[in-house]
């Protein structure tokens, strides 16, 4: 024990401050943006959102695919009821990997609104 203490007293290493060039934010070679591999910036285009929303609505079993356009009301134009409406919104959630809060989900009752909401949602993928 005494030997260990004596030894440690002699092999002490002086503390250094870390070289600032090696830290994460201010690296010499790093690109200016810190999150250059983040996927948050590649947003869906409006035409892609429209196409995918319409394909979800068309694949709904009670809907005649030829009647679906980008401005169609689920209950008035397609003859669906409120439960079908919720079902379509859930299908859209699954397609775009979202979780739409209940209050907003209640308001989505046409393809137009669905496209708007999903296009403006930051996490739609």
């Amino acid at each position: 024990m005494a030997l260990r203490a004596a030894l440690l007293r002699h092999v002490r290493i002086p503390a250094q401050t870390l070289n600032p060039a090696l830290t994460l934010t201010g690296g010499k070679w790093g690109p200016p943006s810190l999150r250059w591999m983040s996927s948050h910036d590649d947003h869906l285009t409006k035409s892609e959102v429209t196409e995918r929303v319409l394909s979800v609505v068309k694949s709904f079993p009670k809907v005649d695919p030829s009647t679906v356009t980008s401005d169609v009301h689920f209950q008035k134009d397609l003859g669906l009821d409120s439960l079908d409406n919720v079902e379509i919104v859930m299908a859209l959630e699954e397609e775009f990997k979202l979780e739409i809060p209940d209050k907003e989900a209640d308001k989505i009752d046409s393809t137009n609104l669905a496209i708007e909401y999903i296009y403006n949602h930051p996490m739609a993928g």
């Binding site: 859930m90 209940d102 209640d106």
Partner: peptide, 17 residues
Amino acid sequence: ARHRVFDFFRAACRSIP
């Protein structure tokens, strides 16, 4: 009660995966 039905339906749909 109607709203609760829809809430239940959403919960069920979200647990499908």
